[in-house]
């Protein structure tokens, strides 16, 4: 049967033609605009011209409808506008795109897409426009004045991610960020210990995930009753979860995250000597 595709094509074409012919009979507006449509050509200058004039008139009427200022936005105006543009829409689809005279499947495909699109649109409007009351009031509460920030670009402090490298390999070299001649404890703090990624020390480190350690030696005295500053600091390093700094301690909005610090230091494999150095250094921050 596939031996003669040409004939098959001809049959299909013939069917197509007769279908077209059938739809001309009941073409309604189509007949009004096109009269008898010659085969293969759905209208000439005259028919298409008439439709174009018709569409232009609709557009003009739409424009006239919105002229009275006090009616704008009311349903008296919106309803005819919607109706007119739907007419325009389907005139173009049916005649300019000659969908009216095409195989029914094309019509179904297009309408399927159109209806799906409409459903999506209606769903979106219902979800976010109608059933969520007054988004404007919501956003007004959170309004921030609009400022041009082109000139002063926001300055982000670089966040140093601690490198979990074996300490022995790195510690001897003066770590980045630590001043030359800095104490060994400070070098570990700024370098291999990775502490500066989370903690701030005035003039030295800017980390923000953990508490500011600028005056840790003083603060540590009163954190846990009965515990000396040195013990508290040591405990904070080797067993950070023993006492978790709270929002109230620091006068900020949010508690610090328990478990955050232990995860980092335990993977670094700090030796007892390293911890001693760190504690010694932190005890100088009064």
């Amino acid at each position: 049967m596939s031996s003669n595709p040409g004939q098959e094509g001809a049959v299909a074409h013939h069917e197509h033609e007769s279908r077209e012919h059938a739809s001309h009979e009941d073409a309604g507006i189509g007949r009004f605009f096109f009269g008898h449509v010659p085969e293969g050509v759905h209208g000439g200058l005259k028919q298409y011209g008439l439709l174009a004039i018709f569409l232009a008139i609709i557009t003009f009427v739409e424009f006239v409808i919105i002229l009275p200022e006090d009616l704008r936005g009311s349903s008296i105006v919106i309803a005819p506008l919607v109706i007119l543009s739907v007419i325009k829409f389907f005139c173009v689809v049916a005649f300019f795109m000659h969908l009216k005279f095409e195989h029914g499947l094309l019509w179904q495909i297009f309408v399927a897409g159109l209806v799906l699109g409409l459903i999506v649109a209606i769903a979106l409007v219902l979800l976010f426009g109608v059933f969520r009351p007054t988004p404007r009031a919501f956003s007004e509460g959170r309004q921030q004045p609009f400022v041009h920030h082109v000139e002063e670009a926001p300055h982000y402090e670089p966040l140093v991610v601690p490198t979990p490298a074996p300490l022995g390999a790195i510690a001897p070299a003066p770590a980045a960020g630590a001043a030359a001649g800095a104490s060994p404890g400070q070098q570990i703090f700024m370098g291999a210990g990775g502490c500066s990624a989370c903690h701030a020390i005035e003039g030295l480190a800017v980390g923000a995930l953990g508490p500011d350690l600028t005056h840790i030696a003083t603060v540590a005295e009163s954190r846990v009753p009965g515990q000396s500053a040195e013990d508290y600091i040591r405990e904070s390093i080797v067993e950070p979860d023993a006492y978790t700094v709270t929002a109230a301690d620091e006068g900020i909005d949010q508690d610090f995250q328990q478990g955050l610090m232990v995860a980092t230091t335990s993977s670094l494999g700090l030796t007892d000597e390293d911890v001693d150095e760190l504690v010694e250094y932190l005890m100088t921050l009064r």
Partner: peptide
């Protein structure tokens, strides 16, 4: 082409809906 146009309806449908929302 018609399948594409049908699907493009969805594309513009959601953009128009976003504007309306």
């Amino acid at each position: 082409m018609w399948v594409f146009l049908g699907s493009d309806c969805l594309f513009f449908g959601s953009l128009i809906a976003t504007y309306m929302v």
